[in-house]
């Protein structure tokens, strides 16, 4: 599964969304109104899904799916380099 698809699936399952409600370029705080605790949950779920460590600062409510994808791709490439 592509990284973006996996991120989308994680967010959709976590926040009980319909796929069409999650726009890839929309900030998490806008369209789906994610709150701070949901973001904590999302960080934990993404860490489990991708086997990387993320900080709360890296995944904020001002992030979009596209932003998260960039962050995770970067983390994954660092893991490969190590």
């Amino acid at each position: 599964m592509e990284v973006k698809d996996k991120i989308r699936e994680t967010i959709i399952n976590l926040l009980k969304l319909k796929p069409q409600e999650l726009k890839d370029n929309e900030k998490l705080c806008d369209g789906i109104g994610a709150d701070s605790t949901e973001l904590v949950e999302l960080v934990i779920a993404l860490e489990k899904a991708f086997g990387v460590k993320l900080t709360a600062k890296e995944i904020t409510k001002f992030c979009s799916v596209n932003d998260i994808e960039k962050t995770i791709q970067s983390k994954l490439s660092q893991t490969v380099l190590k």
């Binding site: 605790t37 904590v40 949950e41 934990i44 860490e47 489990k48």
Partner: peptide
């Protein structure tokens, strides 16, 4: 720690 829902606190 990571097994606990962040909603637990509230």
């Amino acid at each position: 720690r990571e097994g606990v829902s962040p909603y637990m606190a509230s």
